[in-house]
Design a protein around this nucleic acid. Sequence first.
DNA 1: AGACATCAAACCTCCGATGTATCTGGGGGT
DNA 2: ACCCCCAGATACATCGGAGGTTTGATGTCT
Lengths: 223, 223
Amino acid sequence: MALTDEAIDKIKGMITSGELGPGDRLPKEADLAERLGLSRNSLREAVKALSMIRVLDVRQGDGTYVTSLAPDLLLDALSFVVDFHRDDTVLQFLEVRRILEPAATALATERMTPADIAKLQAVLDELGDDPPIEALVANDLEFHRQIAAGSGNAVLCSLIDGLSGPTTRARIWRGLTQEGAAARTREQHQAIVDAITARQPDLARSWATIHVAGVEEWLRRAL
Amino acid sequence: MALTDEAIDKIKGMITSGELGPGDRLPKEADLAERLGLSRNSLREAVKALSMIRVLDVRQGDGTYVTSLAPDLLLDALSFVVDFHRDDTVLQFLEVRRILEPAATALATERMTPADIAKLQAVLDELGDDPPIEALVANDLEFHRQIAAGSGNAVLCSLIDGLSGPTTRARIWRGLTQEGAAARTREQHQAIVDAITARQPDLARSWATIHVAGVEEWLRRAL
DNA sequence: AGACATCAAACCTCCGATGTATCTGGGGGT
DNA sequence: ACCCCCAGATACATCGGAGGTTTGATGTCT
């Protein structure tokens, strides 16, 4: 195994063993390189790889720190990965979303506070009558993000967020809006909020399923 | 933004734009560094980061290539990330598994071929009467992997596989502290296979739910 | 045709130096 | 006493070059 990969494992070991905890600062490059037995250049490659997946946070002029290691931080590297997928695998991602989103919606129905629900409704209301596509996409993303967050499960929330990669969603949306499906999406969003407000998990889950399945079905035909 | 991060984006762009496809070879370090306008050292950091998430495959003495970009490749970096999580977030991962596994099991019930089912049964049968803990865990992992693969969705399969990492650790615990767990797990596995064989998705889904919930409930009490 | 030695290409590792951002502490002004 | 500004120290960012190691291809010999 290459020296750099060994260094990655060693740093990973320092964290998982508890020697380094969230927020802790690593020794400076020169010291850590000497301790791990490699050059600064090779160490930098290891640190770069770990900072890419949000395990380390490097600040020039300050130092290198272990991040909070919170699920949302570590999993949002997922969206970066998802961006590399081509259209022919989007359906598989969508199928997973059709599993996760309804479940998250059902959980949110039981766990969201009235204040959370009010904010969710506000998201829908702040959209004007004839919004531009960009606002529509952003609004849709925020809507689903709040529901996912309402599930009370940070892992589930991050997963949904990551799988709904901005690129993918934007690409799909562009096509959907051309067929005038924006209005129908809006109605479905409102139906989900209504079901959550009424504290009916089954109903909320069903609406979420229908919502995702609609996009999935459209995409299946388009490909 | 740092030069290295720019380089990452540029390489990403070369792939997403189609200039570089799966299996294609990148220009050699020196040429690519000159083209992107940075030093080889900095470029190497970018390449290292991208190879860590399985987007690039570097082979010493040969060259650097774009991977197949298949979902299972890109998502198995997930297991690396998941390893950083501490025990207090394992419950959240388990809750997500309780969503994904039953769904995958139901899909597998409809999509697995008789040959697939036979191989699944074989996995259960090859386990002796009093296997060591390690074999038990490995067998359990293989069992769930085959079902996930049987769902016919590579993204779903990789996701389940990646999330099973921390759960596995917990299960080792369970094996060590709760003696009756092994036999019960085996019964539940057999029940799942029976339901799949009978082509009863609802039954298979329910058994899968019970199976994961059992681990989850035990862990919830243990913490 | 097959096995082996040789060579070139490409990545791996290292070194030392310079640039740049951040934090810290002292000096001066109010 | 308090605040602001600046110089020094610290630590990461980037660079160019020099060997070393692995791989794949070439060519030769049996």
